[in-house]
Amino acid sequence: MTQVNATDDARFERGAAALSRIDGEAGQKVVDSLADIAPDFGRMLIEFPFGDIYTRPGLDLRAREIATIAALAALGNAAPQLKVHIQAGLNVGLSQQEIVEILMQMAVYAGFPAALNGLFAAREVFAAPAR
């Protein structure tokens, strides 16, 4: 395991708070799922994206989730992560209709298959019991 210093602890604390606010239990489940194989990677997931990027000024959480949902849908191979971030979008104030529009927009830039897969992922998230 790598050594952790005070700067890393601050990044981790910032990241853990942001992860909880944005992804709730789903984000922590991803980190927990790495405990037996790559705990350092789980820590990196908290420190870098959430401790360093999500907490930067310049974009609010809604805008960051719009960008994240679009990027994950465009990738076309990240359905589990897309579902987590669709829920995160709902958590930070995006409406279901806004998420549908984001995913439909991906047909223009990422193709119809990516948009369709994104919409199917959204349907699953929207149908799940509220978190």
Score class of each variant (00 low, 15 high):
42 G>E: 04
40 D>L: 00
35 A>H: 12
128 A>M: 11
9 D>V: 07
33 S>E: 03
42 G>R: 00
5 N>L: 02
46 I>E: 01
52 D>Y: 05
53 I>Q: 08
112 F>A: 13
16 A>W: 04
30 V>Y: 13
92 V>L: 02
16 A>F: 02
21 R>D: 14
97 Q>I: 05
44 M>W: 14
12 F>P: 02
120 F>G: 02
65 E>I: 01
104 M>S: 09
52 D>I: 05
3 Q>C: 00
112 F>S: 12
39 P>C: 01
23 D>S: 13
36 D>N: 14
85 H>E: 12
83 K>P: 11
4 V>K: 01
47 E>S: 02
11 R>G: 00
107 A>M: 07
90 L>I: 14
94 L>H: 10
55 T>V: 14
104 M>A: 07
40 D>A: 01
95 S>M: 09
61 L>T: 08
131 R>Q: 14
4 V>Y: 02
48 F>D: 08
128 A>I: 05
89 G>L: 04
7 T>Q: 15
21 R>I: 09
93 G>W: 09
41 F>G: 06
69 I>Q: 03
47 E>M: 01
27 G>V: 04
100 V>K: 13
117 N>M: 11
45 L>S: 07
59 L>I: 05
30 V>W: 11
48 F>R: 06
69 I>R: 09
15 G>R: 00
18 A>H: 06
106 M>A: 06
85 H>M: 04
122 A>K: 08
115 A>F: 05
103 L>W: 14
89 G>W: 10
49 P>Q: 04
108 V>Y: 12
122 A>D: 12
7 T>C: 00
1 M>K: 09
82 L>T: 03
32 D>R: 13
47 E>P: 01
56 R>F: 14
116 L>N: 13
77 N>I: 12
72 L>I: 11
1 M>V: 08
51 G>P: 05
4 V>G: 01
119 L>N: 04
120 F>S: 12
92 V>D: 13
124 E>T: 15
72 L>R: 12
85 H>A: 05
107 A>L: 04
77 N>C: 04
64 R>K: 11
70 A>S: 15
9 D>E: 15
46 I>H: 00
31 V>Q: 08
123 R>P: 06
78 A>R: 11
36 D>P: 01
130 A>K: 15
9 D>C: 03
116 L>Q: 13
11 R>I: 01
70 A>Y: 06
54 Y>K: 06
78 A>V: 03
77 N>W: 12
110 A>T: 03
69 I>L: 06
89 G>D: 07
79 A>F: 00
25 E>K: 13
121 A>Q: 11
66 I>N: 05
27 G>Y: 00
81 Q>N: 06
52 D>H: 08
